[in-house]
Design a protein around this nucleic acid. Sequence first.
DNA 1: TTGGCAATCTGTAACGTTTCAGTATATTGA
DNA 2: TCAATATACTGAAACGTTACAGATTGCCAA
Lengths: 348, 348
Amino acid sequence: MDRRVTKKGDDGTSGKERPTLKTLAFMTGLGVTTVSRALKDAPEIGAETRRRVQLVAKQIGYRPNRAGVRLRTGKTNVISLVLNTEHELMSFVSDIIYGVTEVIADTPYHLIVTPYSRSQDPLDPVRYLVETGSADGVIISRTQPSDPRARYMLERGIPFATHGRTDMGLVHPYHDFDNYAFAGEAVRYLAGRGRNRLALVTPPVGLTYHGHTVAGFADALSEVGASEVPFNTVSIDQSIEQIRMRTAQLMRRKDRPDGFVSSAAAATLAIVAGIEDAGLKLGRDVDVVSKQSSELLHLFRRELLVVNENFRLAGSELARAVLGWIGGADPGTLQSLSTPSEVLPYRG
Amino acid sequence: MDRRVTKKGDDGTSGKERPTLKTLAFMTGLGVTTVSRALKDAPEIGAETRRRVQLVAKQIGYRPNRAGVRLRTGKTNVISLVLNTEHELMSFVSDIIYGVTEVIADTPYHLIVTPYSRSQDPLDPVRYLVETGSADGVIISRTQPSDPRARYMLERGIPFATHGRTDMGLVHPYHDFDNYAFAGEAVRYLAGRGRNRLALVTPPVGLTYHGHTVAGFADALSEVGASEVPFNTVSIDQSIEQIRMRTAQLMRRKDRPDGFVSSAAAATLAIVAGIEDAGLKLGRDVDVVSKQSSELLHLFRRELLVVNENFRLAGSELARAVLGWIGGADPGTLQSLSTPSEVLPYRG
DNA sequence: TTGGCAATCTGTAACGTTTCAGTATATTGA
DNA sequence: TCAATATACTGAAACGTTACAGATTGCCAA
């Protein structure tokens, strides 16, 4: 009986409102259902109708409302990158982000950054994402051999990719840098320069690539007949000052190493500072092979020997992997390993 | 007449589904409307009912469905950080991100990263965000004196904050580092060390802080009676190689500078390399004052003079500003300027 | 007793989308 | 010719939330 002032049938053609399916339906004279299906190339729509709808949609700049889709289908069109906001000094984080955005640029996906801090359980942010259904896919880093986050997401069936491998006998997408090869190459290169008492600056204990690095280092040591100078008190996620001090201590001992293999550029800066604190000279008394993610170590000390790790590539690969899994691909086919470059001495 | 198999009134208490308002309504015996209002402390709900609903909600871990809220209210609970994915070599980006996430951690907001590349109009991503209503607030960087993005968002009434100021006579939230003061301090410090032929490594031309830096530099020069050695062919967003080469060229001339003021750490690495390419020695032939965002320049060359810029703080301030504006605060009160530290010589 | 009013609570509609179950029309097979 | 079937389209319902317009109850003044 009583008609409301704002009645349902307003066709959305007035004013500057964003066009919706209803707008398109009105303009084409079709029903919303037909429009919806025409836009996603459903087979039961006539070819001409389809073209017509798509043309009009393009003309008026129709974009599906994300909230509508998400509410109806559960699809969020969101990828989440889960980051620890306290580790990783010289942050490769931006490179990963750029790599990811590069890949999702021409998809409907958005990238959200989900942080967690040292004090939290790394599982927390992942649990949050899954429980609230906030993302269609997740990228995690700081991967562990037996990673509770990977296990959790596998159980819930949510697509993800890990930066670094796991070792749980479970298959999932990952991208990893071949740290075993890196450490091996580094040792062989140092041995080739006559260095035979080598110390390793390891990745954080507990992460998978710590194991890979240590193994590559050890295997190559015995291969070339060099020996290890234990340096277990140091790993790359310690502070610059800590590493520097410990390095200086080490280098003042008479059984000091004549070569270092360092897993991160930031740590390398500290190692070099420690070496020089002890009055020794890089390239003469000791050589250092280091990974780096941007071209700055050669500027730092020309004597440094570097191997490049491309984090932008890692970001792209991880994004591709997650999207692939979401798209229904076999997770086992979405794994990639990046081979280290050769050891690069200073050129020019 | 005919009852559907799946009928409306299923109360959502079966199985592992995420609880909704309907679930809460069923459990408390109230209507969904009442529950909804009870959760947001609406005044027309009885005190006891309110407590009861909130208790149950907490117990079963109710979280409002973002898509539902967003569809109904238009509120996205999203902040977007708009980034250029090609500039800024030594990326402070991660610090900004961490700063932002720190602030939004205990809010319902998510952070999405919206990239754009050199080839695109910087206005594109902003237009996209506004047109699709993808965010409640936006943070932009690489701010220009007359910034089309700021103007655009002001016109549309969407809350935003800029990293760096504008100069259009329009008021909006910003956070900026006082680059005028930085350049001035740097010049005065160099003058204090007897340097009087100074070169400036400027921020990218066109950005607001280029002007601030140049002005601070020029004003301090005349204040201390030093002179400028023009170095306009270089700015900090050029490649390492470019800067290095140009610096070496400059330093081989007889009218070379005896002091540099550098606006970014990455550029400083190149400057120093160029200086040394020309056979000169830092600290003896020339001094360099540089901004840095992490503590690495002192490791690089102990003779470097540094001023710290805290990008994590910038991220936090920007997030606070946007949230404040969204929350209804006066944009004019959401502006902050970060004062540079003193020039720090090498210690220890 | 009655009317008015405040205090609480509730049903319905709507946001934009997709899916389900149809409907109408044309086409085919016998 | 008629029924069966394919083709092309459509309305209604539902996802979870909030806003609007009531509805119910109890209490008090007249």
